[in-house]
Design a protein around this nucleic acid. Structure first.
Length: 744
DNA sequence: AGCACGCCGACT
DNA sequence: GTCGGCGTGCTC
């Protein structure tokens, strides 16, 4: 044994805490740690868990360093995953420890499971035969294997009797084969029949997967064009090579319907990963990903941090969906980070959507993503015919919300025994309640927004902060009775009108604030799919996930809602939502119809919906942003002020504020260099609710999100920053919301 | 994440 | 006089 073998090591360990640094430890000679291994380390006055980030050298004695306590027998984090953690931390400006947490949260207790033992009768008689032993042996008759618990349970004795019988030779213990973590999958279990366009897209993906190099694709295709079948071919290609694939979906889109479809194609279910998977299962899947045993994971955004051994493919389904944004703790956009992970892993990336986000479209047009398009619906299905109802011309009378033409169409649909859906993205009965006698309007005490009347709950509710108060019968300002008057429609009010118009119809109202929770919702959606209702009235939760096979008519009640919100993505979001809802209409070879009630039939969003071609919309929207001097994406940066992480964050805050000229290598700087972030001429302190609105009213050049107790202090703090002086106190965290593609 | 240290308001 | 609230800072 030479000196190097006898010496200990100096290792850099990252703990999954709010620290950005790694800490140095001495590792005794016997441990021989490698980067990525999981260790227990002393930290402060207790011990924690950490990951070896780097082995820095050897040493004979600890010197002034503390000593690593032990090694955990978990699969080490690969260099690629560690690089991803570092990248994510640098990009989101989160402490590296917090980024590591995302990757190790389910690693705890991910040790190899101990062999499970089962027992079988050997046929030999035990040396001493007591009545209890006889009962155990009787239970073990027939040559089958049983668990210890099953035998002792059947015999009504303690498990130690089984042990004794093993010692006596009457039973034998056998290693049970480890139960599989996930179903085994077969790449060609059932071949999909693909049409020409699909076939072309699928073969592009298949050959990319075979190349084993980072290659990004935008897979764009109208509802029903068979995007899923196409990316299933890419999954199949990864399986054929014995390698891994990750399919990400927004949590609510991850339905058993989807898993069934997957099983029909691959002969088994993928490993599922989302918030309600039990802890034990989670750590098994975590381990299975690291060992390569788990081949395909279908999961929500957190699946992005699994320790894949050989990841060949990442699919981001519904890539435009806002649910990919993580907004507390480490703030990140899972779709963007999927791009980064794919590039680090050298994997194929597929962003899939019927209505891609603007930034993905722009990336495709710039040639950063290969653009695969499916223009036709698969299986000769036709797109729903969309028609506008111009509310200025053919709107309903006073106090009604459904235009006569829409009401008629619903009646006819129900009469044919088909299903209709009325969509209105507004919960409650009426968005505003005022007093006809004095003009009093109900406002939220916490945040100043209008209170929304909920008639089912007899309450006034703030949709911004959740504040609730009882709906009074008397005006609180002028004491007049019976003068409180609801203005505008909410979904409950539409339900009331529909019940009057169609007294014999089976109507279901679906809104996220109804009691019963997810369980009831799931049951109701299944009933809808079975055709148990004639008319469904719902908010945006009807837009996603489920298929409604009997649905042939979709009516959009207030299509303009959301266009006037001041949100920079208002048009984009409205288009995506309405395209999704109206796309639900139609079944088999019978085209559905969509009727859209709008005051602005000429608006680009409406025009795109009516002609059924999103091309129009994207071209308009991108040129609008160009003319407004906004980059098509990466338009904003968020400054989050909080009490913690002062040192790290302060530097970034300075960099951001002086981004136009300063040189620190932060994403903010690079954004500025790319022309995305002009120098601010004013800094204001806004709450999270106000900031997005103010932003693209053009008042501010970038967004400041403030999380802090006292506003006045922050004002001073930020002014100090702007003038370049030392901030008196407090810390700053900067989050930059841009497309990482431009930084790769 | 824990845990200590420190600085202000209400208690035996 | 202290007990304890949480706001802040540190852990190799």
């Amino acid at each position: 044994m030479n000196d190097a073998d006898a010496a200990g090591q100096i290792v850099e360990v990252l703990a999954p805490l709010a620290v950005d640094q790694t800490y140095s430890y001495f590792s005794p000679p016997a441990l021989r740690l490698a980067p990525g291994e999981h260790v227990e380390i002393p930290l402060g006055r207790q011990s924690t868990y950490g990951v070896v980030w780097e082995v820095r050298g050897s040493a004979d004695t600890p010197g002034n360093l503390k000593t690593v306590i032990s090694r955990y027998a978990r699969p080490p984090l690969s260099q690629k995953l560690r690089d991803f953690v570092d990248w994510l931390a640098r990009y989101t400006l989160a402490p590296r420890g917090m980024a590591l947490r995302l990757a190790t949260r389910s690693a705890e207790s991910a040790e190899a499971e101990p062999d499970r033992l089962v027992y079988r009768a050997t046929g030999a008689r035990p040396q001493r035969e007591t009545p209890t032993r006889a009962r155990v042996l009787a239970a073990a008759e027939g040559g089958l294997v049983f668990s210890k618990k099953a035998l002792s349970g059947a015999a009504g004795c303690s498990p130690s009797v089984v042990d004794a019988l093993v010692d006596d030779g009457a039973l034998e213990a056998i290693k049970a084969p480890a139960s599989a973590i996930a179903d085994s999958l077969t790449s060609d279990y059932a071949q999909s029949t693909l049409e020409t366009e699909q076939e072309k897209a699928a073969s592009a993906l298949r050959s990319s997967v075979a190349l084993r190099a980072y290659q990004p694709f935008l897979l764009e295709g109208v509802t029903g064009s068979g995007k899923t079948e196409v990316y299933f071919e890419a999954v199949a290609a990864a399986l054929e090579q014995g390698e891994q694939a990750l399919v990400m979906m927004p949590e609510i889109a991850l339905t058993s319907q989807f898993l069934e479809r997957f099983a029909q194609r691959f002969g088994g279910r993928p490993a599922e990963w989302h918030s309600s998977v039990a802890d034990r299962k989670r750590s098994r899947i975590w381990r299975g990903c690291a060992t390569g045993e788990v081949k395909v994971v279908v999961g929500a955004r957190s699946a992005l941090f699994l320790p894949f051994a050989n990841l060949r493919l990442i699919v981001v389904d519904e890539e435009h969906d806002g649910a990919y944004k993580q907004e507390d703790g480490v703030c990140y956009h899972a779709r963007d980070m999927a791009v980064v992970r794919a590039s680090i892993e050298g994997a194929t990336l597929v962003l899939s959507s019927a209505t891609p986000s603007i930034e993905s479209r722009v990336n495709a047009e710039l040639g950063r993503y290969a653009h695969l398009r499916l223009r036709a619906r698969a299986g000769a299905r036709l797109l729903p015919r969309a028609d506008a109802i111009d509310m200025r011309i053919e709107g309903p009378g006073q106090g009604r919300w459904l235009a006569p033409r829409l009401a008629r169409a619903i009646g006819e649909t129900i009469a044919r025994g088909e299903q209709a859906l009325l969509f209105l993205n507004r919960r409650g009965y009426a968005p505003l309640t005022l007093c006809r006698s004095c003009g009093h309007r109900f406002r939220c005490r916490q945040c100043d927004a209008w209170l929304v009347e909920h008639r089912f709950r007899r309450a006034l509710i703030c949709h911004h902060c959740g504040y609730v108060e009882q709906r009074p019968n008397v005006c609180p300002e002028c004491d007049a009775e019976e003068t409180l008057s609801p203005c505008g429609p909410g979904i409950e009010r539409i339900a009331e009108e529909a019940a009057k118009l169609f007294p014999n119809a089976r109507i279901l109202v679906l809104s996220s604030d109804f009691p019963g929770g997810a369980e009831r919702l799931r049951r109701e959606l299944e009933e809808v799919a079975k055709g148990s209702f004639d008319l469904i009235i719902g908010t945006q939760l009807v837009a996603k996930g489920h298929n409604f096979p009997y649905l042939t008519l979709v009516g959009v009640v207030d299509a303009d809602l959301g266009l006037g919100s001041g949100d920079p993505r208002a048009s984009e979001r409205t288009f995506q939502l309405l395209a999704q809802v109206t796309g639900r209409a139609g079944r088999g070879d019978k085209p559905g119809a969509a009727l859209i009630q709008t005051y602005h039939p000429e608006h680009p969003v409406m025009r795109a919906l009516l002609c059924g071609d999103p091309e129009d919309f994207y071209a308009q929207e991108i040129s609008l942003r160009e003319r407004a001097g906004l980059p098509p994406f990466g338009r904003l940066a968020a400054l989050i002020v909080s009490g913690r992480d002062a040192g790290l964050a302060e530097a970034h805050a300075r960099a951001l504020v002086r981004a136009a000229h300063s040189l620190p290598p932060t994403p903010a700087y690079r954004l500025a260099a790319a022309g995305g972030l002009p120098e601010p001429d004013e800094i204001a302190v806004l709450g999270p609710a106000e900031a997005p609105i103010a932003l693209l009213r053009g008042r501010f050049r970038f967004r400041l999100l403030i999380k802090a107790p006292r506003r006045a202090n922050l004002q001073g703090f930020l002014r100090d920053l702007l003038e370049g002086g030392p901030p008196a106190r407090g810390g700053v965290r900067v989050q930059v919301d841009v497309d990482p593609q431009s930084f790769l």
